[in-house]
Write a protein that binds this DNA or RNA. Structure first.
Lengths: 242, 242
DNA sequence: ACCTGAACACCGTTCAAGT
DNA sequence: ACCTGAACACCGTTCAAGT
């Protein structure tokens, strides 16, 4: 069962190719959609533009994906392909380092496509890539002695932090194309101005760190907090040592 | 300077009301937009529907908001109104409890409107509510002895976790209107089926916790990890005790 | 079986013209 | 100064009809 089941309700192309051979299929459609996403961003990814890139009419896409949302879910699933294999390629380290590596791999997968985090956050993918990642994370935690409940909640905490962080990281990296300045992009200049205008003494003091562009350091710090928190939880809860 | 400056480039209504009195304004437009959001969700919030609710034509909205994105930013800002006042109303407790209260207030603010987290995550609000919240959080942390860099990074970690968590919480609470099952909603049933179909032993073991609907407990656990992580960081770094 | 062509019911945004 | 009316350039989705 390696294949992703995008949508069991969709009519998949039957095995013996009756009639004309298909000009597109799910895999090529998702691949082209991800290329388009990376080139132009989520807002520019329309069914019509995707169809044009595939040299087909827009309606043809609906033979493979019931809705655009289904396509986005398949894209999210594909983005995470191989993300669970990270600890296997770097087997050393304790559970904390393995968890850090896995979270970093998730962030890397989302960062590897423009608006990747937005696509992932906007879908609910339950394919082999996503579940395999979750399975690996939970395996590391249970192997380290955490209980089932703690392992599940730790998975959620790490995943939600990673998605939330990468969402903002990619929003900040948005090109802000043109002097018209779109409102979503996290321009540090606007933040600086806003802090200067109001009375935010505390914020003003930490502004240099807050507006720095080293998102890897921000991510590492948050992840470090979660791992150290887990260490504290385990020390307080279970009878086993580290 | 209490007023939120939605967009300095927009022509605000001049003080002496020349010509016809305005039938709509920014404040009423944002309030109505939030009502509509809460009733029907973000996907149903269109400029045309909002205009109809305000008894006006769609084009009239563009005298107050340059783009829909600007309107959404103003909505995000308004959602967080008063969220920084939480520690003032419950002044007791150490920095950890105060931080927990602030994060809980942020989650509560996002939860108080349907798709609130999606609106917030999709914008970059830098008004008094958002900056006031950030200022308060940083103030708590610096007051507890954390350095400027750690305080800034801790703010980001807590905010990103909270947004990421609430994004998923609201996706899970989506009514999933109709048996057609929209793909975004985090139906626990689909997750159960997907885990059962594949070979995810670790995931299967924690499935009861993973699919439980007590998001408050999930949120509390993640927040607990962050706070305990901060305690560990402070113990390891600074010379001052707790 | 697979895709086209054409339509349906919408969008966000702009802007001359009215009052 | 504020809003209307109407248009522009799109959307996602459906479906009879062609091959």
């Amino acid at each position: 069962m390696n294949t992703v089941h995008y949508n069991a309700a969709m009519s998949s192309p039957s095995s013996p190719a009756r009639g004309r051979p298909a000009r597109i299929d799910q895999a090529r459609t998702v691949a082209t959609a991800l290329e388009l996403l990376d080139e132009s961003g989520l807002d520019a990814l329309t069914m019509r533009r995707l169809a044009t890139a595939l040299d087909v009419q827009a309606g043809a896409l609906y033979r493979y994906f019931a809705t655009k949302q289904d396509l986005l879910t398949a894209m999210a699933e594909r983005m995470l392909a191989g993300v669970a294999a990270v600890p296997a390629s770097a087997p050393g380290g304790d559970w904390g380092e393995q968890l850090t590596g896995l979270a970093g791999a998730l962030r890397g997968a989302l960062l590897s496509y423009r608006d990747g985090a937005r696509v992932f956050a906007g879908t609910y993918a339950t394919g082999a890539s996503v579940l395999g990642f979750a399975d690996t994370v939970v395996g590391v935690l249970r192997g380290a002695g955490f209980g089932d409940e703690e392992a599940a909640r730790a998975l959620l905490a790490v995943a939600n932090f990673t998605v939330g962080h990468t969402l903002e990281e990619q929003a900040a990296r948005q090109p802000a194309d043109g002097p018209g300045a779109p409102e979503r992009s996290a321009d540090p200049e606007r933040l600086r101005r806003a802090v200067a205008e109001g009375e935010f003494e505390q914020l003003a003091a930490v502004l240099p760190t807050l507006t720095e562009s080293d998102f890897t350091a921000h991510f590492a710090f948050g992840l470090h907090l979660l791992v150290e928190g887990l260490r504290a939880v385990r020390a307080a809860g279970g009878p086993s040592g580290g």
